[in-house]
Amino acid sequence: MAESKSVKTIMNGIWRDHPVFSMLLGICSALAVSNKIENAIAMGAGVTFVLLATGIIISLLRKIIPKQVRMIVYMITIASFVIIVDRVLKAYFPEISDSIGPYVGLIITNCIIMGRAEGFYVANNLGQSFLDALSNGFAYTYTLVAVAAVRELLGFGTLLGFQVMPDFMPRWVVMSMAPGAFFVLGTLIWITKTISGQTED
């Protein structure tokens, strides 16, 4: 029984209630930092770390936190871990930190984390919250990497910095800029919605 609940938690996270495609959470950063795969991986790792840490803290403290101030408690918890992510990126990956800059700080307002804290961690124990954080973080990361792969390939002709496209192919510069982000994510939403059959009528 416990097994099946865990499996359900994971499946909900990575496909059925996919944070980006079906809940439309965390779109800002999914669009803004997905111009290169390395940025996407760094952002995905950062969000996963904050999700895990917040999940652990909130699910452990869920009986102590008074209901009226829970939002502020989430915010402070999330912000503290975001500072850690920001410092680690600055110290060990200065180039990535330069290119995604302020968007690391914006992990605080990434609605995935707030959404999971309010919707899942307050009501579930440590183990379930851990699984949920892991699967949501993974879902977010693979979405970012998928968008980034398309944009980097078309915009720069590279994948993870290695040249893939032949030289005679023109670079599709728009793809590496803001409009490309909208088009690629819009198309991905279309594809996933069609596959999963969750259409709006």
């Binding site: 088009f183 819009g186 279309w190």
Partner: peptide, 16 residues
């Protein structure tokens, strides 16, 4: 297309 309705088409509009 059904899957394009809602968020999908908003994205594309915003892109243009």
């Amino acid at each position: 297309p059904k899957g394009m309705k809602g968020p999908g088409i908003i994205m594309v509009t915003a892109g243009i």
